[in-house]
């Protein structure tokens, strides 16, 4: 039993979960409009998009690399998809092409980082500008008009759950989270990801092809960012070339709040989701309470620090406990 408590405390997402539950209770008390069905629907609306990006970032950081270009890919993928649909491509093919562009950018990030041996922080910073520029150039000064008549219900339609009506995309997010969580925890490739980020030399010396593992994670991260961008553009039925600007910071914040360690080898999918829920909750309560929206960044910043401090402390405590 004691052992279970220790294992639980050692989980990377523990601090974020505790903060989430505590704030949820507090917010429900201090503002009776918070835990109301209408507000919960609003609250859940943007969650899938940020969470999907944060999950990709989380896996990449666990593998010991980084991606600053996710915000740009988030804008580029739907730009490609919408442009192709305008040119008469079937929706499925256009989305596939959008995702493939994203995967290609992830491949480029991996290639620059791994073959040219420069830090992924720099490689993907470069890609942040290049991919964004690509999206702007593609838009050609006049952002394409989103086909209003397009049936998007399969991706972002309303899901009537009685109390709340989130978007269908929430189901996609849950499915992606379950699959990725399974891969990380139950599949050998997941072990390789943790080993690659946790101790690259040990992983290599034990015969793991760490470059291939990292490349797969770069491509996964970018593809998820592209998919999230497509979800958002389909939800708001607009495509602009600056879609997703600054999103990389929110996604990294969500991942870090969720317990991912920038040193690699530590983190969880659940953490990425809870981190996202927390960031969105802060935004939501600030808007509800009519607080100056500029406090949002302050609150997110404070939460990063609190979560990481709490995380470090619980993990240290867990290590000190004898099981």
């Amino acid at each position: 039993m004691k052992l279970n408590v220790r294992n639980l405390m050692a989980r990377p997402e523990m601090a974020a979960l505790l903060i989430f539950v505590a704030l949820f209770v507090v917010f429900s008390f201090i503002n009776d409009r918070f835990f109301a069905t209408g507000n919960m629907t609003v609250y859940l609306q943007p969650i899938p998009e940020l969470a999907i990006v944060a999950m990709g970032i989380t896996i990449l950081i666990i593998a010991g690399e980084f991606d600053l270009s996710v915000g740009s890919v988030f804008g580029l993928s739907p730009m490609v998809t919408v442009l192709l649909m305008q040119n008469g491509w079937p929706t499925a093919a256009a989305i596939l092409a959008g995702l493939m562009i994203a995967a290609l950018i992830g491949f480029g990030n991996g290639l620059i980082t791994l073959k040219l041996k420069i830090p992924s922080f720099i490689a993907t910073l470069g890609m942040l500008f290049m991919a964004r520029s690509f999206a702007v150039v593609l838009a050609g000064g006049f952002p394409p008009i989103f086909p209003r008549e397009l049936d998007v219900s399969w991706l972002v339609g309303r899901l009537d759950l009685g109390l709340v009506t989130p978007r269908v995309s929430l189901l996609y997010m849950i499915a992606i989270a379950l699959v990725l969580g399974f891969v990380l925890r139950r599949m050998d490739f997941g072990h390789w990801i943790f080993a690659t980020g946790g101790h690259p030399q040990a992983a290599r010396d034990m015969g793991i092809k760490t470059e291939r593992v990292k490349m797969a994670c770069f491509m996964l991260c970018a593809t998820l960012a592209g998919f999230a961008g497509i979800i958002q553009s389909f939800r708001v039925k607009v495509i602009v070339p600056n879609l997703g600007t600054g999103l990389e910071m929110q996604a990294i914040a969500a991942a870090v709040i969720g317990g991912v360690a920038l040193t690699g080898g530590v983190g969880s999918i659940l953490g990425a989701v809870v981190g996202t829920l927390l960031i969105a909750m802060i935004e939501n309560i600030l808007i509800l309470s009519g607080v100056n929206a500029n406090w949002f960044m302050f609150a997110v910043g404070a939460m990063i620090v609190v979560a990481v401090v709490l995380n470090t402390q619980t993990r240290l405590k867990a290590e000190g406990m004898k099981g």
Partner: peptide, 22 residues
């Protein structure tokens, strides 16, 4: 067997035992 011990500190004994050969 390397001087530095080819083990990933954050991973469990069982996971390290079978690393790359699960």
């Amino acid at each position: 067997i390397y001087q530095y011990t080819a083990m990933v500190p954050e991973m469990s004994i069982a996971q390290n035992f079978f690393i790359g050969r699960e």
